[in-house]
């Protein structure tokens, strides 16, 4: 079957790939582009492990076709840190031990960053509902919520 040529931007750099029309953006990122940070936990939009930003909007990359990314900008977990400088969300996940196995972590990092970009000072309830699409089976969410709260404080300049 004919592959489509897609020209896009991934983590700030222009990228091109060929993909089959039924391939999801997650398949493309992992199998074609070679960015395996986004994880497949369900392939049905129920776990959030594949979360990426598509033109700034938080989506499950398993629910987007690779061809739909034409002309768009994609941010994956690999693009969240600036060089070797971790994003406050990443730093606070580490400090708060907000990960155990780490498999859901890439999706949670991207989703938490998206939350704090749009709502710099979310309440606990807002954090919990925003992240309801990111399943974590290890942590019970407690330390994740605290890490996001703390990262928000850093981004607002209240703490370091």
């Amino acid at each position: 079957m004919a592959k489509s040529y897609v020209s896009t931007t991934i983590n700030g750099e222009s990228a091109e790939y060929l993909c089959e029309p039924q391939q999801t953006l997650l398949d493309v990122l992992r199998d074609v582009v070679g960015l395996t940070g986004s994880k497949e936990g369900c392939a049905s939009g129920d776990c959030g492990a594949c979360s990426v930003l598509l033109d700034g909007t938080l989506v499950c990359s398993c629910l987007v076709l690779g061809v739909e990314a034409e002309g768009k900008s994609i941010l994956t977990v690999e693009g969240v840190a600036q060089g070797d400088k971790l994003h406050p969300v990443q730093q606070k996940f580490l400090e708060h031990a907000a990960l155990q196995c780490g498999f859901c972590t890439p999706g949670l990092i991207v989703a938490s960053k998206a939350l704090l970009d749009s709502n710099p000072n979310p309440t606990e309830t807002e954090i919990r509902y925003w992240l309801a699409g990111n399943l974590c089976r290890c942590t019970g969410y407690d330390k994740i919520v605290r890490a996001v709260q703390d990262a928000g404080a850093v981004m607002r300049g209240e703490t370091v």
Partner: peptide, 9 residues
């Protein structure tokens, strides 16, 4: 409908 992620679509 669905999660924040689904809301984006």
């Amino acid at each position: 409908i669905g999660s924040t992620q689904v809301q984006g679509r």
